[in-house]
């Protein structure tokens, strides 16, 4: 947890220097946002507890296909969005089942 926190601190210092040198709003926002993101990452790592995973996870692979289909659906049409949405539900169900085992 300490590493992302140190990094967040360094980014915050850089954001302050940028502000002092008259940085544009978007520039400061991006850098300060990254500092905040790194701090959130540190908190997430502190809270996360690991669990054993199964040898194979078909549901994870299926979820990837569904996510790719959902994004592609934005270009190829609602039919793909609907199919991918259904596949994603199936994949999530599978992941929950894996987690409950």
């Amino acid at each position: 947890m300490i590493v992302p926190l140190i990094w967040a601190g360094l980014l915050a210092v850089n954001a302050t220097v940028l502000l002092a040198l008259g940085g544009e709003a978007l520039e400061v926002l991006l850098l300060a946002g990254a500092a905040a993101g790194a701090a959130v990452l540190a908190a997430a790592m502190a809270l996360r507890r690991g669990r054993a995973a199964p040898e194979v996870s078909g549901s994870a692979a299926l979820a990837a296909v569904a996510v790719a289909g959902l994004v592609l659906g934005a270009e190829l049409g609602p039919w793909l969005l609907l199919i991918s949405g259904g596949v994603l539900l199936l994949a999530l169900g599978g992941l929950v089942r894996e987690a409950l085992r």
Partner: peptide, 15 residues
């Protein structure tokens, strides 16, 4: 850690 995410990451790379 998070081995299913690693698997997901590989599939998304192919996608």
């Amino acid at each position: 850690a998070l081995p299913r995410l690693a698997l997901l990451g590989w599939w998304l790379l192919i996608g």
